[in-house]
Design a protein around this nucleic acid. Structure first.
Length: 424
RNA sequence: GUGGGCGUAGCUCAGUGGUAGAGCACCGCGUUGUGGCCGCGGCGGUCGUGGGUUCAAUCCCCAUCGUCCACCCCA
């Protein structure tokens, strides 16, 4: 006996019990996104390492210590993607898709970060994301948020999430504020905790996000980013919030919201929940007006978001709703001599009724055993094919979830009969 | 990366310094062609792994791995 190989740490399997939830999430998201005119795009899991270091910012934790990077057989440094936006920008540029403004795309798939796993945080995790290019105005910001709100509604979790909003201003304003904040914090360095002191030079804006209670009064007193924004940036934000108010989408202004990735500008937002412990951000994003340029393209603005599928599935799980697709019918083969006929019949039914979920008994077994399996399958009814039925050219139909009497249906009419009598 | 909780059957867990148990699940029987309820029987664990203490370790100690939680980070 050889040793059983286990999955890598933080790389969970998604098992059949949970799969219906994932499918519900992904199908609902696909429907909502396409209803807003987003087209699906799929990019490789493996990219040149430089794509991410340039995009995300070399001083971030993602780049410094969380990327799965290695040299391929050609000696080129490649990395598993830690997020999706960089690849989408790369692909849009590479294929000249940014010639026309207003491109909307969405993606879905696994991302990889070498983190210490905990609830809502694994090393391989999944995101659904959306990106829009070439639209600078607050109108698209608002529509993007409305779309996410609509998705929460469709998923039935609207009551569990709330929207937090902020503006980081233009790249210049952001940079100036960062310097200003840094200088101010430097003067209060003795009041900072160890984590914050460490971040002072690398990412001072993140200090505002600290959860340390001892830091809160200092953070309150720190200069506010919003007060350092120029008129244009303020206008952008005010127009956005006016549209949100008109659409009756509740939001909160969180002045400490700064986001972790370097490329964000102007509008940034997070949809957060209190129901998942420490990993409460379920969807986050913002505007990244300088990113396309940073990747060697024209000065085209962009905005997008990514949502964490594991976290959304966790919210869906709390609803206790059953998303699984049970078979409609279970075909019991009363006599093994009819195995061949049963398979032929099954194929015929499936061809006639593509939406029919039919599970035929495989592997033989006694009637008792087959009925047990039929019951366990949650099928609405059992079809029984035995020698008597076969000789008479009919099949016995028994309801498994109600007390109706079982009936004999001619094989020639079985398809129609099922269509008329099955629900959902 | 830091700190803490936990690792006994597929699942949820009990248990003792003398090499293990329950419930659920699974399989079979009680019906020669009828499931769900019930009864009976059965399958199933090198007690995470390695080392130490001991006459003896699943139990005590150390390490390691895994898992969960918080920090950190982030979706």
């Amino acid at each position: 006996m050889s040793e059983k190989i286990q999955s890598l740490r933080g790389m969970p399997d998604i098992l059949p019990v949970d799969a219906p939830l994932w499918q519900f999430l992904e199908q609902t998201a696909a429907a909502v996104l396409s209803s807003y005119g987003y087209a699906y795009i799929s990019t490789p899991l493996l990219e040149p390492t430089a794509l991410f270091t340039r995009s995300i910012g070399a001083a971030t934790d993602i780049i410094e210590k969380e990327m799965y990077s290695f040299d391929d057989r050609n000696g080129e440094s490649v990395s598993l993607r830690p997020e999706g936006t960089a690849s989408v920008v790369r692909a849009m540029l590479q294929h000249g898709l940014l010639q026309t403004p207003g491109q909307k795309v969405w993606y879905q798939g696994p991302m990889f970060r070498y983190e210490k796993p905990q609830r809502g945080r694994s090393r391989q995790f999944h995101q659904i994301g959306a990106e829009v290019f070439g639209l600078p105005g607050p109108d698209i910001d608002a529509e993007l948020l409305a779309m996410s709100a609509r998705l929460w509604e469709s998923l039935g979790i609207a009551g569990s999430v709330r929207l937090e909003l902020n503006s980081l201003g233009s790249p210049l304003e952001r940079q100036q504020y960062r310097q200003h904040l840094h200088d101010w914090l430097k003067q209060h360095e003795s009041d900072l905790d160890d984590d914050s002191r460490r971040r002072l030079d690398t990412n001072p804006m993140r200090i505002l996000d600290s959860k340390n209670p001892d830091m809160q009064s200092l953070i309150e007193a720190a200069p506010k980013l919003f007060e350092h924004l120029g008129d244009e940036s303020r206008q952008h934000f005010e127009q956005l919030t006016a549209i949100l108010d008109a659409m009756q989408i509740p939001w909160q202004h969180n002045q400490r919201l700064v986001r972790g990735l370097d490329y964000y500008t102007h509008t940034v937002f997070e949809w957060v929940t209190d129901e998942l412990g420490a990993q409460g951000t379920v969807c986050a994003g913002g505007r990244y007006d300088g990113l396309v340029e940073l990747h060697g393209g024209p000065a085209i603005p962009g905005i997008g978001f990514a949502m964490g599928e594991e976290r959304l599935v966790a919210l869906l799980q709390q609803q206790q709703e059953d998303f699984s697709q049970q078979p409609h019918v279970y075909l019991i083969i009363a006599d093994q001599s009819l195995q061949q006929q049963a398979l032929v019949l099954s194929e015929q039914l499936r061809r006639e009724h593509p939406s029919l979920r039919l599970r035929a008994n495989m592997g033989g077994g006694s009637m008792r055993a087959q009925f047990k399996r039929a019951d366990r399958s949650q099928a609405q009814l059992a079809l029984i094919l035995g020698t008597d039925e076969w000789a008479a050219g009919e099949i016995t139909v028994k309801w498994l979830r109600s007390e109706q009497n079982q009936v004999a249906v001619p094989l020639s009419q079985l398809g129609n009969w099922l269509q008329q009598n099955l629900t959902d």
